[in-house]
């Protein structure tokens, strides 16, 4: 295989989780791909769909329950026990702290990030099975969502892609 063929030219990212730490990696990888001249698309499925639902994608939160790596008040602080993570407001508080850190690194809020990826030529798709299951319609999505796809269509559009599941 020649060196030119070893280069990644296209990525299809599947975003299946609706927590902050589930959504951002997909967005950062898609945006990063476009910045390297790599074709990129994101297929949002299951709870990942919340990242492109216009009334909900500014309210994405960190999971403070069932997250054994979670520490407070910062990454080297004390381990957060699951029962404490379930205290009302804990998720909102952790999200606020994380958003502050991200803002300092110039990582955009989710709605702005989606818009940036779309403007950069990245494609945003929604999973048909989830749309049907959640009783959603096209009107529920942010305007950047290009098309609701079946899994078959997703594979078709991903021809020649590296598929990344997050």
């Amino acid at each position: 295989m020649s060196e030119a063929n070893d280069k990644i030219t296209k990525v299809s990212i599947v975003c299946s989780k609706g927590s902050l730490e589930g959504v951002y990696p997909a967005l950062i990888m898609a945006n990063g791909a476009r910045m390297e001249g790599i074709e990129a698309s994101i297929f949002f499925t299951f709870f990942g769909l919340y990242a492109i639902l216009k009334d909900y994608n500014d309210k994405i939160k960190i999971a403070t329950v069932g997250n054994p790596a979670m520490r407070v008040p910062d990454a080297k602080g004390m381990s957060l026990p699951t029962w404490m993570g379930s205290i009302p407001g804990m998720s909102a508080f952790a999200t606020k702290m994380m958003n502050k850190e991200m803002e300092q690194l110039d990582i955009p809020p989710i709605p702005e990030f989606i818009e940036m990826i779309c403007d950069a030529g990245g494609k945003i798709y929604a999973c048909k099975a989830t749309v049907d299951m959640f009783h959603l319609s096209e009107a529920d999505f942010c305007p950047q969502m290009e098309k609701v796809l079946t899994v078959g269509e997703f594979y078709e559009l991903s021809a020649g892609s590296q598929i990344i599941f997050t």
Partner: peptide
């Protein structure tokens, strides 16, 4: 605008 950036300097 991001769109303009990618039009002016395609591919990174």
């Amino acid at each position: 605008p991001i769109k303009e950036l990618y039009e002016l300097y395609p591919g990174g």
